[in-house]
Design a protein around this nucleic acid. Sequence first.
RNA 1: GUGGCCGUAGUUCAAUGGUAGAGCCCCAGAUUGUGAUUCUGGUUGUUGCGGGUUCGAGUCCCGUCGGUCACCCCA
Length: 431
Amino acid sequence: MAALRFQALPGFRDFLPKDAAARNYLFETWRSVARRYGFVEYETPLLEDTALYLKKSGGELSSQLFRFEDQGGRDVTLRPEVTPSLARLAAQHQRDFPKPLKWFEIGQCFRYEKPQKGRGREFFQFNVDIVGEAGPAADAELIALAIDTMLAFGFQPGDFLVRVSDRQAWLDFATRRGLPDDKIPDFLQIVDKLERDKPEISTEKLGSLGLSLDEVRAFIANPANASTAYDAIRADLEARGMGDYLSLDLSIVRGLAYYTGIVFEVFDARKSMRAVAGGGRYDTLVSTLSDGACDLPTTGFAMGDYVIRNLIDETPHAAFQMESWLHRNAAACDIYLVLADESKRPEALQILADLRNAGISCDFPLGPAKINKQFQNAERSGARFALIVGSELPELKLKALSSRAEERCHVLNLADWLTDRLQQPDGPLLA
RNA sequence: GUGGCCGUAGUUCAAUGGUAGAGCCCCAGAUUGUGAUUCUGGUUGUUGCGGGUUCGAGUCCCGUCGGUCACCCCA
């Protein structure tokens, strides 16, 4: 038996009803914040031409692709991120929309990595982008959205912060030091790892580029090196009352190769300082992917379901908020029909159909069952009421399952009466 | 890709190298028109897989697959 049993592939998840409900909580929260900010939802394919990712994503990502040849001989890849798809889409359809585009997508991505805590080979990502706006106001709008997303999950000031940096500042730095263009990716990589690598290693790496660790650290430490874009973003967010979440940190560079300007990360401020979301400006990606046919400055960020879910679980007030939501949304139905008299099943089915047609969520026993079993099932379904159909038809009884209070009702106008009843809070709960 | 730990019933876990067990879950009954609790009964295993050592392996050894955690990197 064990040898024949199938299980999910490594790094892939099954979503049992409880897990699916938790995922819906994330999705609904993401959607509601995006709508509050005037973003509209779009969707792109899970499978794309491999070249789309090899062209500009760069770095580790290209070695983590779920890549294969399809039956038509095409080199295809399950998307490791959605940004290149968006850039492709934007280049193709940009004339159909007034700029800027404020678009978001919630979708699954795939990366062939070793699964561990907070990371699988498949994950869902909330992607938010503003296409066709070069000014820092677009970056500020996205950072504000990221902050409001965290607040919508129940996180509080002090739970997280947004670390902002600007690759342009580093490009200027590199130019002033006469660093050749082809060394810049390596240089950014070194800066990115400054916090993790040992100082000796950083010193050695920088030395090979003719730079010293001290001058790089000095550059990071001096707030005056922040770009004018950063200053504008700070002013923007302060006007929104969100200035306290911001923190300038020039050591942030981000791994993806296509970023060109402002980059930022939402960080867990408590324990591990994990990045729960990240993004930045990629003004040349659309142009690159369209071979120059279309040039649209773009900025965006992504938040993954694994990391945000972990952070929620570890943060009591956020976890409590999610539990409350799950509790409110867990019920399989509002009303459970109890057949006290099996011979009334045809009449019960008529009632069931009427209620469902009226938009009331209800369930019932598919076969003969003892009364106590039916009440047990009613309880487990999470229904608020049990509607008892018995020999006294057309009279019925409605029992509130939480208070155990019963009241009589009648099949005439039952759907209307129940709809009204469901609007009211549960019966005589006092006592 | 590198390393640590771990694979026993649906699940959580026991079992000094000597007859594979318990809690929970699930199902049924006690209860012929009312949910909790309680009680009773019941189903489930080639101990991940393959080899080796041994009179004897869930236990020790090797391999393999899977899980998990850390590194790398990232969501």
